[in-house]
């Protein structure tokens, strides 16, 4: 049985108490909410924090109104029809029913980057003499790369990026709110602009027509190997991509092109072409990387056509294998 290493467990009851503990413990501490990302990593010894600070008992993180507390579970998001459809579709396609009952929106936004050379047991990583992201000094995906190319694998982030969401970070020194886009950094190791003493507490997101399309092998369990989110903001469609870089990102060139345009078939095709040129999948996840890049345009077209109002239920049920949200 895979087991966790020893750690000290702290369960603060208020946000300020949690922030104080975090400030005191520094990088030795890790936050645990749903645990679905952290605990497997700890069992595989990808990380071994000395202190776990549980966020479960902090009522502020459970706020479930216009502002979403970071501790809201993915299932709670799926079950809340007043939330944007794109976000609910993204949440509904994370992992499995069980993991969505456990995992939180905050956790999904802060999900560790993933790579086939990294998401392995200690013994396996030892057999390749480790890698840049953890305990080693070479990136086996791109051996000439100075940068870790582990892949952002969050489903909710692209959906929220397209919707123009903002997040709040709290530390013992105060709080700051920033556009979600600014939370992410295109580096597989330092993938978040979150300081170690900060807690992601809230997500602010207005409702808008939106959609999310996920490419993965199976209808359950799998992380995305491509995520395409689209939202209609101020009359213009906006696209965000996930799982094609170390961060999820708004596709600036495609969004410039889309600004003010009707979603005609030609516009959709061109947006797909532009977006696909920005997708940089690597050979560190499931399915052939060239194929993943190749189908990006098709997935962008699904997203934009659904946003336009086309009935894509048949396509959706073939790709997702069910009707998410």
């Amino acid at each position: 049985m895979m087991r966790l290493p020893w750690f000290d467990y702290r369960a603060p009851r208020t946000l300020s108490e949690a922030a104080r503990i975090l400030a005191g413990e520094g990088p030795n501490a890790a936050l645990i909410a749903g645990g679905t990302d952290l605990l497997p990593n700890m069992k595989r010894r990808q990380s071994a924090p000395k202190v776990l600070v549980s966020l479960r008992r902090i009522p502020e993180l459970k706020r479930n109104g216009a502002v979403l507390g970071a501790g809201i579970t993915l299932t709670e998001i799926v079950r809340k029809p007043e939330l944007p459809r794109g976000l609910r579709q993204a949440a509904a396609q994370v992992a499995t029913v069980h993991l969505r009952n456990m995992g939180t929106i905050g956790g999904n936004l802060c999900l560790d980057t993933r790579c086939n050379y990294y998401n392995q047991n200690y013994e396996w990583r030892k057999a390749i003499d480790f890698c840049l992201k953890k305990d080693g000094d070479i990136c086996w995906v791109a051996t000439a790369s100075k940068r870790c190319v582990a892949m952002s694998s969050t489903d909710c982030a692209p959906a929220l990026l397209a919707l123009g969401a903002r997040v709040t970070l709290v530390s013992a020194n105060g709080e700051r709110e920033l556009p979600l886009e600014e939370l992410y950094n295109n580096d597989g190791i330092d993938y978040l602009h979150r300081r170690p003493d900060e807690i992601l507490t809230e997500v602010h997101c207005a409702n808008a027509p939106s959609t999310y399309w996920k490419l993965r092998r199976r209808g359950a369990f799998d992380f995305p190997v491509l995520g395409v989110a689209a939202a209609l903001i101020d009359g213009s469609a906006r696209l965000a991509l996930g799982a094609v870089a170390s961060r999820p990102f708004l596709v600036a060139k495609a969004n410039d092109f889309l600004r003010g345009k009707q979603l005609t078939d030609d516009v959709i095709d061109e947006a797909g072409r532009i977006a696909a040129s920005r997708a940089k999948p690597m050979d560190n996840a499931d399915l052939d990387l060239y194929w993943r890049k190749e189908v990006t345009a098709a997935f962008v077209a699904y997203a934009l056509r659904e946003l336009r109002g086309d009935d894509l239920r048949e396509t959706r049920s073939r790709i997702a294998r069910y009707e998410p949200a």
Binding site: N119, W124, R218, A220, F221, D222, R321, Y322
Partner: peptide
Amino acid sequence: PSLLEYKSITSLE
């Protein structure tokens, strides 16, 4: 060598 990345079909497939 994991149940996640060694793909086997689920009830949905």
